[in-house]
């Protein structure tokens, strides 16, 4: 029976050295979300019952469209990091984990791109 522990396999490899950056970005986007979510809720409440023309005109206002754009970008970065931790906590198969982490990134970018494109089209498009 070997007296060695699995520790020998990981000694000297070091950490990925990205943990602190992950932590800080989660906090920074969390702080941004704190302000921008409140704005988004107020905007949604204001837009209840609005027809398409009103909706479009509201988003086209830079003071509305810009914070909404920031909200979407901040939320996408924040939720990607958050879901990454959830996946790493519960998915232990190496293959499944890598696939899910990739899908997570795709999802966050798709949400951000689709929303940003739409906001810009509503604001700038004819």
């Amino acid at each position: 029976m070997s007296m060695r522990t699995p520790l020998k396999d990981v000694r000297r490899l070091g950490s990925a050295k990205e943990g602190a950056d992950h932590f800080w970005t989660q906090r920074t986007t969390g702080a941004a979300n704190l302000v921008l979510s409140i704005f988004a809720i107020a905007l949604a409440v204001n837009l209840i019952g609005a027809d398409h023309a009103t909706f479009k005109a509201t988003i086209a206002n830079p003071l509305v469209g810009l914070p909404l754009l920031l909200f979407i970008v901040s939320a996408a970065i924040h939720m990607r990091l958050g879901m990454q931790v959830i996946i790493e906590d519960y998915v232990h198969g190496e293959g499944a984990k890598i696939v899910l982490l990739m899908l997570n990134t795709f999802f966050a970018i798709a949400i951000a791109a689709a929303s940003a494109f739409s906001i810009l089209k509503l604001s700038l498009g004819g």
Binding site: I59, A114, S118
Partner: peptide, 11 residues
């Protein structure tokens, strides 16, 4: 966030 994106894309 899918709902937010959906409403924006729909608009």
């Amino acid at each position: 966030t899918l709902i937010v994106a959906w409403v924006l894309v729909a608009a």
